[in-house]
């Protein structure tokens, strides 16, 4: 979208969030219904379950310019498909190793359990992730490539 001329301002992190349909996506909707206000840096990709998170998705987001990735699923025991969130947890653990090997801070990837009734927690989490990633600065991918 065409933007008016702008002066460079402070670093604003870009965060891509993958949210499961049954819990966190619905919790994000509840944050809206209850008018929680949170930083606009997050963009939501809808997944049916956190267990559908593919390592490729996270890497793609980080390589294309995201500074942080948030994966949101149901609390342990609450996954609509029984165990998808445990699968997500195992996959994220593997992913963090890969990130370290790629020279990227593993702390850029967040996995959080947020239920459909936790709209406030969703807003708080976005705030927390945004601030933490802001403090880390732009993704090492960007700074390495720019250099």
């Amino acid at each position: 979208m065409a933007e008016p001329a702008k002066t460079p301002t402070a670093f604003e992190p870009r965060i891509v969030a993958f949210l499961c349909h049954w819990c966190t996506y619905t919790g994000a909707d509840l944050a809206g219904t209850t008018r929680q206000q949170y930083p606009p840096n997050v963009r939501v990709v809808h997944l049916m379950c956190s267990g559908a998170i593919d390592v490729v998705y996270v890497l793609k987001a980080l390589m294309d310019g995201a500074d942080g990735v948030l994966i949101g699923g149901c609390h342990p025991g609450d996954c609509h498909y029984q165990s998808g969130n445990f699968k997500a947890r195992r996959r994220v653990a593997i992913l963090k190793n890969i990130l370290a090997q790629l020279g990227l801070s593993a702390d850029r990837v967040w996995l959080r359990w947020i239920s459909a009734s936790e709209g406030r927690l969703f807003a708080e989490t976005v705030r927390e992730v945004t601030e933490a990633v802001r403090a880390m600065g732009p993704s090492e991918f960007k700074t390495q490539w720019d250099a």
Partner: peptide, 11 residues
């Protein structure tokens, strides 16, 4: 993901 991650004008 491409749309979101490569978004322009975030400054």
């Amino acid at each position: 993901i491409e749309v979101f991650a490569a978004e322009e004008g975030e400054e």
